[in-house]
Computed example of a mutant assay.
Amino acid sequence: LSYPVLILGTPTLGDGQLPGLNAGCEEASWGEFMAQLAGASLSGKTVALFGLGDQVGYPDNFVSGMRPLYDALKNCGAQLIGHWPNQGYEFTTSASLEEGAFVGLVLDQDNQYDLTEERLDAWLDTIRPVMV
């Protein structure tokens, strides 16, 4: 919490879960950290999110794991930046959509690894001015 700006990322597991012991992970992760966020004040913090997903294998909950993280950070007063357009992906449903855009950068290393560098560069260009 000593940093004024954070870039946080998460994969989506199974049916849209954050990684953690309840999702079958061998070690604690976001699932366990979420309890520590409850009641924390992130007022004055700027946070950008990115999520990893597989739009072909999991089209019904593509990158949905970002949503609980986004909601928790927002509820703690963080300023969330870095929404990302949903064009260029093929999926059915995602909990990480808000007003037609993803709540953070979306990367699909399984099916669109060739677009990762381009997407990352474009996303960083949009968040960089706010993060300085």
Rank of each mutant, 00 (worst) to 15 (best):
N75K: 13
L69C: 03
F62I: 09
D54C: 09
G82R: 08
L73G: 05
D71E: 14
A40W: 10
A72M: 05
G65Y: 00
Y58F: 15
F62W: 12
I81S: 02
L52Q: 10
D54E: 07
P68Q: 06
K74D: 13
D71Q: 15
V56G: 02
G82F: 09
G51K: 09
G44M: 08
L69V: 15
V47D: 00
F50M: 04
G44D: 09
G82A: 05
V56E: 13
P68R: 11
Q55L: 11
F62Q: 13
V47A: 00
P59N: 12
C76E: 07
Y70S: 02
D54P: 08
G65N: 11
Y70P: 02
G53V: 12
Y70T: 01
P68L: 11
Y70H: 15
A78G: 04
S41A: 13
G51M: 03
F62S: 12
L80P: 03
C76H: 00
G57L: 06
G39H: 08
L80S: 05
V56I: 13
F50D: 03
A78I: 01
S43A: 14
S41F: 08
Q55M: 14
A72T: 07
G53K: 04
D54L: 08
G82S: 04
G57R: 12
L49Y: 08
R67S: 09
V47W: 01
R67H: 10
G53H: 06
M66S: 00
Y58N: 13
D60I: 01
G57P: 10
G53T: 11
A78F: 03
C76K: 08
G53M: 10
G44P: 04
F50W: 11
G44T: 12
K74C: 00
L52I: 14
L69A: 02
G39N: 06
Y58G: 00
S43T: 15
L49P: 05
A48M: 10
S64W: 04
R67Y: 03
D54F: 03
V63N: 08
G39R: 05
I81H: 08
Q79S: 14
Y58S: 11
G51W: 05
S64T: 05
N75E: 15
A78Q: 07
A72H: 01
F50H: 03
L69P: 04
L42I: 03
I81D: 02
G65L: 04
G82W: 06
L80Q: 11
L52E: 12
L52Y: 13
Y58R: 10
F62C: 11
G53L: 10
G82D: 05
I81V: 15
A78R: 05
A48I: 12
